[in-house]
C-alpha cells in the first residue's frame, strides 16, 4: 500500500491488459448480471436436456412475472431507503377482492378494478403512516403483512373463493400470448421500461436516488421527500396488486394463502441479488430484474432436474451467496481500477 501511494504511473503499468479490460467491462453492472444469468442458463442447458426446449423460456417469463412486477416497486422503494414487506399478503388480498367482486357482481371489469384498487389504497395507507406519521417502514409493513393476511383469513375463513362465472378472458391475462411472449411477461416488460425511463430520465428518478443516498441532504436541497416516498408506496402497492391479479387469473380463485411461502423475501432477495443495496440509494432497475430471473431460472432448472427440496434449499442459498459476493468483487474491481488510469 505504502509503495503504491505516489507511484501511480508505475502501478498502472504493472496491471496486465486483460485485467484492465475486465475492469472496464465490470463497470457495466447490467452486463455482468446478464453474464451471471447466462452462466446459470448455460449450466442447465448442459446438464438437463429438457432445459433445451425453447418453450421453457417464455414460461420462465410467465412464472416470474409476479416477482418482476413486485420487484419493480420493491427496487424503487429500496432505492429511496424504504421497504415493503406486505407484498406477499397483497397477493392474497387482491385475489380475494377480485374474485369476490366477480361473484357478487357477475362483472369481470368491476372485479379487476376493485382488485387493482386495493394496491393504491394499501400503498397510500403505508405512505401516510411512513411519511406523515413518521413510522418506520419495515415495522409498519411487517405489521400490515400480518394484518392483511389475517383479515383475509377472517374474511374467507381459509376457504379459496372460486370464480363462479369462469371468466375465460380473465384467464387470458395469465395464459394468453402476444406473439411469442406471454401476456404477463409483456405487461412486466412494458412496466419495467416505464419504470426505467422514470428512474433514469426524469427528475423524479434522480430524486429517488438522492433520498436513498442521504435523506437529510435531499430534504435540505428542497426535494419533496415526503411526496416522493408516498408516491413510491402507492406504486409498490399497485404493482403488488397487479401481481395478485395475475395469480388470481392463473388460479381462477381468490386464494387466501397466495404468496404465503415468503413471496416478499424472495422478491427482496432477488433484487438484492441484482445489486440493489438494502441501505438505499444504490442499485439499478435492470440488474434487479435480472436478479429476479436468476432466482426464477434456478428454481425452474432444479425442478427440471428433479432435484429434491432438500438440495434445492441448499443450492438456492449457496447461489444467493455467490451472486452477492460476485457483485462485491465486481464493485471492488471497479473501485480499484480507478487508481490504474
Amino acid at each position: 500500500m505504502a509503495v503504491a501511494q505516489g507511484a501511480d504511473v508505475r502501478l498502472s503499468d504493472t496491471v496486465p491488459g486483460w485485467k484492465r479490460r475486465l475492469a472496464r467491462a465490470a463497470r457495466y453492472e447490467d452486463l455482468s448480471l446478464v453474464l451471471f444469468f447466462a452462466l446459470v442458463v448455460g449450466f442447465f442447458l448442459i446438464f438437463e436436456p429438457s432445459a433445451r426446449e425453447p418453450r421453457i423460456y417464455p414460461d420462465l417469463l410467465r412464472d416470474t412475472s409476479p416477482h418482476l412486477l413486485t420487484g419493480i416497486g420493491m427496487t424503487l422503494l429500496l432505492l429511496a431507503g424504504q421497504l415493503d414487506l406486505s407484498v406477499g399478503a397483497m397477493l392474497a388480498l387482491t385475489g380475494v377482492v377480485t374474485v369476490d367482486v366477480f361473484n357478487r357482481t357477475d362483472n369481470m371489469w368491476l372485479g379487476i378494478i376493485a382488485g387493482l384498487l386495493t394496491g393504491p389504497i394499501v400503498g397510500a395507507i403505508h405512505g401516510y403512516l411512513v411519511t406523515v406519521q413518521g413510522m418506520d417502514s419495515l415495522m409498519t409493513t411487517l405489521g400490515s403483512m400480518f394484518t392483511i393476511r389475517g383479515l383475509v383469513y377472517v374474511y374467507t375463513d381459509k376457504a379459496p373463493i372460486t370464480d363462479e362465472n369462469g371468466f375465460k378472458s380473465f384467464n387470458k391475462l395469465w395464459n394468453g400470448d402476444i406473439g411469442p411472449l406471454p401476456v404477463p411477461g409483456v405487461i412486466a416488460i412494458v412496466l419495467i421500461a416505464l419504470a426505467y425511463i422514470l428512474l433514469t430520465r426524469t427528475e423524479f428518478g434522480r430524486n429517488i436516488y438522492a433520498i436513498g443516498g442521504n435523506k437529510q441532504a435531499a430534504r435540505v436541497s428542497g426535494i419533496p421527500v415526503r411526496r416522493i416516498t408516498f408516491t413510491l408506496f402507492v406504486i409498490s402497492g399497485t404493482l403488488a396488486a397487479l401481481s395478485g391479479l395475475l395469480i388470481a387469473s392463473q388460479t381462477s380463485t381468490g386464494y387466501f394463502d397466495a404468496g404465503v411461502q415468503g413471496f416478499e423475501l424472495i422478491v427482496i432477495a432477488s433484487v438484492v441479488l441484482g445489486g440493489v443495496s438494502l441501505a438505499g440509494g444504490e442499485g439499478r432497475l435492470i440488474s434487479a430484474m435480472i436478479g429476479v430471473l436468476i432466482l426464477g431460472m434456478t428454481g425452474k432448472g432444479l425442478r427440471l432436474m428433479n432435484v429434491h427440496t432438500t438440495q434445492q434449499l441448499v443450492v438456492t442459498g449457496v447461489l444467493m451467496l455467490m451472486a452477492v459476493y460476485y457483485h462485491r468483487m465486481r464493485k471492488q474491481l471497479v473501485l480499484r481500477s480507478r487508481d490504474w488510469t
Partner: peptide, 16 residues
Amino acid sequence: NWQTAVPGIVIVIAVF
C-alpha cells in the same frame, strides 16, 4: 383466523 391479524394490528398500533 384472528391469530394472524391481531398481532399485526398490535404491531402497527405500537409503532404508531
